[in-house]
Nucleic acid binder design. Structure first.
Lengths: 135, 135
DNA sequence: CTAAGTCCTCGAGCTACTAGAGCTTCAAGC
DNA sequence: GCTTGAAGCTCTAGTAGCTCGAGGACTTAG
């Protein structure tokens, strides 16, 4: 274990990623396997910090694990064109926009339902009616 | 099996809910258990169609299974006040709005990243840079 | 009676973690 | 050197809400 190495808890504090999640990322191959102490405890190099932050940012932006994997692979090929990266990002943006549209529609429906409700009994409740409607 | 009863496939076609999903709703108690033929095949009454449509609408509006369960319970109490229903709907609307806000922020971040990218190599890629950034 | 279509159960798989049980290792203080 | 408490380890299972597949049984038209 070198001076600059971190134990899993330190890495967690440095990055804001939970200990269990870090182990999980190792298991699924997002984060390269850490070195081990004689007792079996993981120790991480500074490169792990960078990589984990990269992963964290990707996840915060909503990229799936598979996409993160691709982005990591790309990030390692410094000579390659960044075409694929841009495409991935654009596709993801498209997906986000679709979700936004869907959510907005949903927001409106809910608003309508709620505004229609004037209190009272279930049997006259507009919300229940709306949910039960055949169309 | 009465004239008006439906087999699971018919119910699926009538409601647009998949066969496996209908069975699943039965298993988890959202949809009351169907009657069975001598050979063990389910047959559904018209009331099942109504209930399933109700569930479908709820799910389309993004209510969780637990919330759907509550809404169903309420819907059955025609004399009860619709207060709880309205509260549930409002809470859900709030949750939807929060998601919307988060997604919009995400959309902007992605847009910024994508606009910053001018093509070229990974080593100069602004997207990768943004993802790798320490802050 | 047969064949095609539909249905049955049971178990596993999906995403991306998260929590807990039961045990071991590490490091600081005495 | 010893103790002790924090932190680490592995493994299993659980979360939400379905979805799919295997292997077999039922149903119904011809």
């Amino acid at each position: 274990m070198r001076q600059s190495d971190l134990r899993i808890g330190d890495l967690a504090r440095h990055t804001g990623v939970g200990v269990a999640t870090i182990r999980y990322y190792g298991d699924v191959g997002l984060l390269p396997e850490a070195g081990r102490s004689e007792g079996g405890q993981r120790h991480y190099r500074p490169s792990h910090v960078e990589r984990l932050m990269f992963i964290k940012h990707c996840r915060e932006l909503g990229f799936s694990q598979d996409n993160v994997r691709m982005l990591l692979t790309q990030a390692d090929q410094s000579d390659a064109s960044c075409e694929d990266v841009a495409r991935l990002a654009k596709e993801h943006l498209e997906a986000v926009r679709k979700k936004l549209t869907a959510l907005q529609a949903l927001e409106m429906s809910l608003e309508d339902m709620i505004h229609a409700c004037r209190g009272g009994r279930i049997q006259n409740c507009r919300i229940i009616e709306a949910l039960a409607a055949n169309e």
